[in-house]
Design a protein around this nucleic acid. Structure first.
Lengths: 228, 228
DNA sequence: ACCTGAACACCGTTCAAGT
DNA sequence: ACCTGAACACCGTTCAAGT
């Protein structure tokens, strides 16, 4: 292959750098973040995707942080798109907590970089309002609903950040699981009987089913609290 | 202040570079990772702490990954230190899930960097065996116990990675919460009534109490599943 | 008004050279 | 056998210069 040369040869789809703006930039970022390449959202790569100098982004976003919050909210909004409340509170909460996750997992890079931030924008507000409506329908009072929302919201954000990290880790994560199983072969016989017996089952659990399982446990706990 | 000069003037506590070894290196890393400075574990900083060239670490660990796994297991082992099973399975599981979290939150940098890896070492094995014992005592069969373990294990790892990230974010995270509250003042009146009403309560929830609350919900869900 | 490009202070990692 | 230090290919960000 021929190496990049300092000459400006436009080797990739590049639009005119003059046409920059928040909208164009965000779209380019989402295109780059759609895969599982670990460092897809560097300014240099975004610049290349746009056919512009990396630092041109600073004319449209104060810093990477602001860019990330805008991206994250867009991803949340995409997850919320088409949401309608279910017939029961439990269906609504489950649906919402799967939607936010699914949205973020399409853009794992955005998830890892922004999962612990509050975007304070439209998408997030739609999600919160829908969650509070479902919890209020369930019978929780104002304060209680707020506390349960925080638990659920951080549950989905934390776990989704975790899952996105696994996606970006890719092969390395699968190797971890295999090595985990093999590692018990070298443990003194009988030292960890339960884990030795179950390590294969544990290692074979896929992240998505695990999340759904944990989510059902959480929903079960919320239902139990409602009865008490 | 006088800038660093190329001369070797030993301005910090430095031991002889010849005394390196995994043990010395890991201790230096834990010293550096005990605070909330965002990038405390770079090779250059570890090298400075040891009074050695950064690349000397490669004589003792294959790469940063191997160093991190060793560190993470040590942190898990510290959290497990002194653990004794409770009288009921619920006490044991709660205790274990608070211990791992507490251990990691003393070294937030280790938590963010290694939360999604399997260490395959002693500390982790102790934790898993203790969890499986508690779940078995609860009455779960082999397979079921393995699935519940995975849900609990990833719950604590995901949330702890999330919390550690918040700690490293520091002031920025607190600013997010304040800005979150203020942002609802600029929302069209009546568009998000529930969130507008509750945003102050939601924003004031501290991460530690939130984790404990979610953990109780999860435990409640496990108990409910046990009854079914 | 907006974009460019050199520069700065960082990363993890490699490798030839020292002792 | 182990440590050093220059080098490489990256980061986000700043700022003077261009158009």
């Amino acid at each position: 292959m021929d190496k990049d040369k300092p000459v400006n040869k436009a080797p990739a789809p590049r639009r005119r750098a003059q046409g920059l703006g928040r909208e164009v930039i965000l779209e380019a970022c989402l295109r780059l973040a759609a895969g599982t390449e670990p460092d897809a959202l560097s300014f240099r790569k975004i610049g290349r995707e746009l056919g512009a100098d990396p630092t041109a982004l600073y004319r449209h976003f104060a810093d990477k942080d602001e860019l990330l919050l805008a991206l994250a909210d867009r991803v949340i909004a995409m997850g919320m798109d088409g949401y309608v409340p279910g017939t029961g509170w439990e269906d609504s909460v489950r649906d919402l907590m799967l939607r936010i996750r699914a949205g973020f997992l399409h853009y794992p890079q955005v998830a890892t970089l922004a999962a612990l931030r509050v975007t304070r924008q439209e998408g997030e507000r739609e999600f919160i309002e829908a969650m509070l409506a479902a919890l209020s329908q369930a019978g929780f009072g104002r304060r209680e609903a707020a506390l349960v929302y925080r638990a659920c919201g951080d549950f989905v954000l934390a776990w989704t950040g975790f899952s996105a990290g696994l996606l970006l880790l890719g092969e390395k994560s699968a190797q971890d699981d295999e090595a985990w199983v093999r590692s018990y072969a070298q443990v003194p016989k009988g030292k960890y009987p339960l884990a030795t017996e179950s390590v294969e089952v544990m290692a074979r659990v896929q992240d998505e089913e695990n999340y759904r399982f944990a989510l059902e446990l959480l929903l079960g706990g919320i239902a139990a609290r409602l009865r008490a």
